[in-house]
Simulated scan of single mutants.
Amino acid sequence: MNTKPMLSVNDVQAVLDAARRHAEQNKWPVTIAVADDGGHLLGLVRLDGAAPLSAHIAPAKARSAALGRRESKGFEDIINQGRYAFLSAPLEGMLEGGVPIVHEGHVVGAVGVSGVKSDEDAQIARAGIAALQA
């Protein structure tokens, strides 16, 4: 039988805390979501001032990155390059800001962030993930 690494509740909290610190240092009102490798929500924090819609978009970005095993920006790029049929894929959140969490070559989950510019969302997600490699 195969075994695989997975996120613990402490891992999820570490990611949320680090991502939150990064967002607050930059005064970015965002929602941060962490999902497992199946895209299921494990944790979410909506910072003061974050738009209500961001609480829907952040988990969708995390789910897309987890299930797709790639940054959600990749899906956005595919669509923007004219492959509009990809819009029929069974995913939401195909926008930049979802970043997979990779451990020992396995995608163990993902972080999705929504609320500021897409590249800033991704930056916050990466800051959260970096807490696991520290």
Rank of each mutant, 00 (worst) to 15 (best):
I32R: 15
I32Y: 12
A50G: 03
Q133N: 07
N10A: 15
A131G: 03
E120N: 06
P100I: 06
G74A: 11
R46Q: 11
K4I: 04
D48E: 14
A14N: 13
A62R: 08
L41E: 05
Q133A: 09
V111W: 09
Q81C: 12
H106I: 01
L42G: 05
V99E: 10
T31Q: 13
V99P: 00
I129M: 09
L91V: 06
G109C: 09
G39Y: 09
V113E: 06
E96Y: 05
N26V: 00
R83E: 10
L41C: 04
F86R: 11
L132E: 04
K117I: 00
E24Y: 04
Y84E: 13
Q13R: 11
E120S: 03
I129K: 14
G98L: 08
E104Y: 06
L41R: 05
R63S: 05
V30F: 12
E92G: 01
G43M: 11
L47W: 09
D17K: 03
D17M: 00
I101L: 15
F86M: 15
N80S: 14
P90M: 10
S114P: 03
G93K: 13
M94H: 01
A50E: 02
M6H: 14
Q123Y: 08
A35Q: 06
Q133W: 05
A65P: 00
V12I: 09
G109D: 11
P5S: 15
I129S: 06
L47F: 10
V111N: 11
I101D: 04
V99A: 07
V9W: 10
I101M: 12
A130Y: 01
A58T: 00
G115A: 08
A85W: 11
G39S: 10
E71H: 08
L91N: 07
E92A: 13
W28I: 01
P52K: 12
W28D: 05
I101K: 15
L87G: 14
P59V: 06
A58D: 03
K73F: 03
N10W: 04
V99G: 03
R63L: 06
V113D: 01
V111F: 07
A33R: 12
Y84G: 10
A62I: 01
L67N: 04
H22V: 00
A131P: 00
H106S: 10
V34Y: 11
G105D: 05
L67H: 05
K4M: 10
N26F: 06
Q123D: 08
G68P: 01
G115I: 07
D119W: 11
A65E: 01
L91H: 10
L87F: 14
E76A: 12
S64F: 06
V15Q: 09
A58R: 08
A62G: 03
L53K: 08
I101R: 14
E104A: 15
